[in-house]
Design a protein around this nucleic acid. Structure first.
Lengths: 251, 251
DNA sequence: CGGGTGCTTGATCTCTATCAACTGGTGTGG
DNA sequence: CCACACCAGTTGATAGAGATCAAGCACCCG
């Protein structure tokens, strides 16, 4: 019998929205031993070069993955919100090549990597589910690389805003085209490869063109189509449709 | 009995150098149905937005994965050489969000995705092997994002050269610190997010500082340590040590 | 009320893009 | 053997994008 209010249910629901699991797979996942932890804003959950043995599932909050240069410059690689499994990679990779840091007070669930690995052996469905998660991660990295490498400043910022909006809307943190932006301009800058000042000016350009408006941290996307055009945003790279279905009658 | 000269053996050896497989897993892999194909230079193996159902294993050659903007600007996401499995992701992702293109005449092996997926179900060792491959891919993307987003021009170019050198040396395409660069300056530029002109000038700076030299396409890394320092290159992100070993006595 | 943090603005300078021309090597065909 | 085309690499001049430095403002919270 499935326990109600198991904190793992949110992630389970997300996985099953892509593709339903067998009852066995479901039960095995919900039986994983977990440790809840709470972090304040701007805490490092994982330090670069750490040897971690636990991945973490975000219950509520916002974190980023990032890498830094010897001179202190930082590049944020991705943002993650509720029901995202972060650092799933530590299941197989021995050392973390990047850090993980909170951008708001965040509750996470720590799960032992060996337990995760064992789950993928006992339940191949989970091997596919986690692999799919990793593939989507990689797809997002590619899109961000394009963003940082080839888009002009306004386009970069616009693209990031649309991605954040898209992700927040999936977890019910938007109202129509309004949402509260959980990330400061400084951190947005580190995500798009610009200086904070130039990020600020790009935001102003978006406002001048009537594409967004904001009061404090509350953003509103006023011209969604223009934003999409400007930043050539196409949510396909987030692969919302879920994984390919295994076709057993094929060799 | 294992067939000699099976073209899949190169990749198998690479996987097993990280972690040995069971005989069953080995045999199942070598029994995969494959179709060899040869491509000339600058051919698109996979077009962006394609719905492919076959991944491809490079036997000999050089390809890149890339994304393009509506205005035609291109960002190369990664380079791949002999014994790299490219587009492994098409096993689970329905549409390709990027293209794949050759940079020299290249021989590949096409493998049906359903067969690959089935292999991961029958042999969980392969699920882990492929997942690991995907995780390393993602780690490289993160490093490239840092490269493009935060490193100065010379650093970017230096870093890319060291990565290419590192990859070529693993497949025996280097002699000491010499190797023939299979990629034009135009394409290097698309990989580091610079213009071709500026990439050229960055190369010249590396030469002026005595870090590299080149005659035609033959490059030589003359001051490896200085190059590493300049571009803060640390091969850890390539995760050469292989995956974590499953620990069965852990819950 | 004071101080911290995040946002905004202005001035200046550097880095990188763009455009255009030129070089040198290689391959091809007459 | 030469003329020609083609392509990668190189160089110069100029414009523009974005960084940097410095200061001021607004808000929140103790």
């Amino acid at each position: 019998m499935i326990e109600r209010d198991n904190p793992l249910e949110g992630y389970l629901a997300k996985i099953e929205s892509r593709r339903p699991l067998s009852q066995d797979a479901r039960d095995a996942f919900l039986a994983l031993p977990v440790e809840p932890e709470h972090y304040d804003i701007y805490r490092e959950i994982v330090r670069e070069d750490d040897r971690t043995s636990r991945c973490c599932l975000i219950i509520q909050g916002c974190v980023s993955r990032f890498k830094t240069l010897p001179n202190g410059e930082r590049q944020i690689n991705s943002f993650h919100f509720d029901n995202d499994m972060v650092d799933l990679q530590s299941a197989l990779l021995l050392v973390s090549d990047h850090g993980i840091r909170t951008h708001s007070p965040t509750t996470v669930l720590r799960i032992d990597c060996n337990a995760v690995l064992q789950l993928t052996i006992d339940q191949p469905e989970w091997a596919h589910a986690f692999w799919f998660d990793t593939l989507v991660d990689a797809a997002v990295f590619r899109e961000w690389m394009l963003n940082v490498g080839r888009r002009v400043a306004v386009g970069r910022v616009g693209h990031l805003i649309l991605e954040i909006f898209h992700k927040l809307s999936r977890i019910g943190r938007t109202e129509g085209y309004k949402f509260v932006m959980p990330i400061t301009q400084n951190d947005l800058a580190d995500a798009v490869g610009l200086s904070a000042v130039h990020t600020n000016r790009s935001l102003q350009q978006l406002r001048e063109h009537g594409m967004i408006s904001s009061i404090g941290r509350t953003f509103s996307i006023d011209d969604f189509e223009a934003m999409k055009r400007l930043s050539s945003f196409d949510p396909a790279y987030l692969h919302p449709a879920g994984p390919r279905v295994v076709n057993p009658e094929c060799s």
